[in-house]
Amino acid sequence: MSCFQTIQDYGLRSIGIGERLLPKESITLCEQFTLIGSGMIWNIYYGVIALATGFFLATALAVAKGSNRRIFRKPAEWFIFLFRGSPLFIQFFFAYFLFLNLKGTHPFFGPFTAAWLGALVVLFLNTAAYSGEIFYGALRSIPKGDVEAADAYGMTGWSRFRRIIWPTMLRLAWPAYTNEAIFLFHATTLVYFSSFPAWRQKGDSLYYARYFADKTFNPFIPYPILAFYFILLTLLIIGFFGLINKRLNRHLPTERRAKTRGLPNLLR
């Protein structure tokens, strides 16, 4: 079977298009590359949607945590502590069993027991908490002069936030936020190891990598392939976030710009 044929059969296997049976015997390199790459679709799906939606909740959380009013500050602080203080892996497990219990009483929660929605919700809340903390830190280090200047121009409330505070916050938070994005994409590999079932063997890249490692009892091929895909993805993220970083900093002279690369690695 030619490699082109394999790509046709398994290229979209992870979303249920193509050959149903996974390769069992005499597994070729091409099959491993294709299937693991096909699994990346899910990693990208979880990462992109969780980041895009989590961004807004994170902004809201950061503002709420920085608020002077107790009723806004306390819930935001607790939310961030809850999701940053516990392992994502346990959050997945808990959420899965919670949704399973809720499904019994409210049929509405049925779809939440499937990975595509349930795990997405957990990742969304998790990344919102981590980015919320990053944005909160940035919010506190906005130069005093910027806000005073906005006041002097008579800007208040929403327009001051929208035009002055928010862009500066993003600019300051961006390098750390890039790291968060990278780690979120890495975290997506946990989904299919945490009770969320892979329906009809439609899994993510690590799911397939483990499948091959179990079948061939040789970890030295599937995992480096996975590593290759993830390094590629990480470079893409750094490139994309670097472009946004450039745009956010376009008003500053070049040497004052915060660099995305070369910064100490901020861990989750």
């Binding site: 990278i182 994409f185 946990l190 990598a209 490692a213 995992y223 590593a227 993830f230 390094i231 990480t234």
Partner: peptide, 11 residues
């Protein structure tokens, strides 16, 4: 930095 830590664990 480039690779998920869980992949290392499995490997």
């Amino acid at each position: 930095r480039g690779i998920p830590d869980i992949a290392f664990f499995m490997f």
